[in-house]
């Protein structure tokens, strides 16, 4: 594909109460096959999707949280997380899973994909996209 577009997936729902989080993840994985510039934003209850230590054995749901840690392999290297949303929930970046990618241009050094952003930065982020997908 010659034209690379900037895609932003906006994730705003908690992981298990509704199907949005899983649906978004599946679309992200399908979309990744088309080699576009894909970025994810976690805000509002969406920050819970990447919370550390999820264990779904007791609720008989598939625990799809490990899949977020594979997204680095899919060349998704920017996962934005809303600072305001973390604050409102009493969470810090340490409560999130480490999400990393290997930087091709830096001898495959492992780097964090997580970028914490405030509301003004989220506004700017949305403005610079070609396509915004909301879940």
């Amino acid at each position: 594909m010659s034209d690379t577009k900037k895609f932003l997936y906006v994730n705003r729902k908690a992981p298990y109460g509704t199907i949005y989080a899983l649906e978004s993840l599946e679309v992200v994985l399908i979309g990744a096959a088309f080699e576009q510039d894909v970025q994810l934003l976690f805000m509002d209850d969406g920050v819970f999707q990447i919370a550390k230590g999820q264990d779904t054995k007791g609720i008989e749901n598939k625990n799809f949280s490990p899949t977020y840690t594979a997204l680095g392999d899919y060349e998704i290297t920017k996962m934005y997380v809303s600072q305001e949303s973390l604050d409102e929930r009493g969470l810090t970046i340490d409560d999130l899973m480490p999400l990393t990618y290997e930087d091709e241009d830096d001898d495959w050094a492992e780097k964090s994909s997580i970028i914490v952003v405030n509301n003004a930065e989220i506004a700017a982020l949305m403005e610079e996209q070609d396509v915004v997908l909301s879940f």
Binding site: A14, P15, I59, N63, S65
Partner: peptide
Amino acid sequence: LGPDLAARGIADK
């Protein structure tokens, strides 16, 4: 409910 806390990774919070 414990299983719902554990699923969401917040059992210790």
